[in-house]
Amino acid sequence: MLLEVKALSKRFGGLVAVNNVDLVIREGEVRGIIGPNGSGKSTLFNLISGVYQAEPGGQIVFAGEDIAALQPHEIARRGVARTFQLLRIFTQMTVLENLLIGYHPHIVYSSAVAAIGAAKVWAEERRLRDEMMELLGYVGLTEYAEMPAGELSIGQRRLLALGRAMAMRPKLLMLDEPAAGLSPVNVDKLLTTVLELKKRFGLTVIVIEHILKVVMESCETVTVLEHGEKIAEGAPAAIKNDHRVIEAYLGKEMDDAEVRAFLKAS
């Protein structure tokens, strides 16, 4: 088990965003998490990555260690990388620098050594640059390395966010709607990139996605959340036919073209 979530809850005032959720992620798995807006998907991510503190009683065990009480940076340092729905890339820094920040947990030299500009710092920085350039190649942004990240298009920004998370050399990669706002071509491109990276680095991936095509094509197991509760879990094919899932989506806005298409297809 890489990640084991037990009885996880989060309340915001009277609102129960996540209610008593259990989740088990095997090593090397690609897990999809779907659910209507406000069903607690992103909150679940924020709980795992330490942005929110879970209600007492909940447990998040990552690689055998309870990380529920840890700070976000401590969790990141243990190998949990995530992207954000709103990306949160560093727009004033260059593309390469964004990746280098991702590598931060693995920097070997100390602050004091950096301050005096020791030769090994520069050697390490040079090595890093090369390594990050290679990673930039994987996400297809090599030629933008020295460009401020703010000048990238939305699709390139999503790739950069993915690259930054990858630079952390994570064990667990959590993607929050990585394909939102992308054209179908770019969705495919992103999908291939993620799967390639997974294969190459032996990652475990959790992905929240609205574009169901992505989930259905790439995930081995899908978890469905509604009103903060887990209502179904299983292989994509099984999930499609689960009546509670259909109900959950039916209960939502019917004008959501994608949901209708999904239901028709199922």
């Binding site: 990555s49 942005v51 940076h73 990141a76 949160r88 004033q92 820094m93 931060h104 301050a115």
Partner: peptide, 28 residues
């Protein structure tokens, strides 16, 4: 120069821009 061109300087810039994203990258 040494401080700002090293990882420390990058971390400073990261937390200036977005402390949450910086934390998610492991910056304390």
């Amino acid at each position: 120069f040494c401080i700002l061109r090293s990882d420390i300087g990058r971390s400073f810039k990261a937390l200036r821009e977005d402390p949450l994203a910086a934390a998610a990258c492991g910056v304390n």
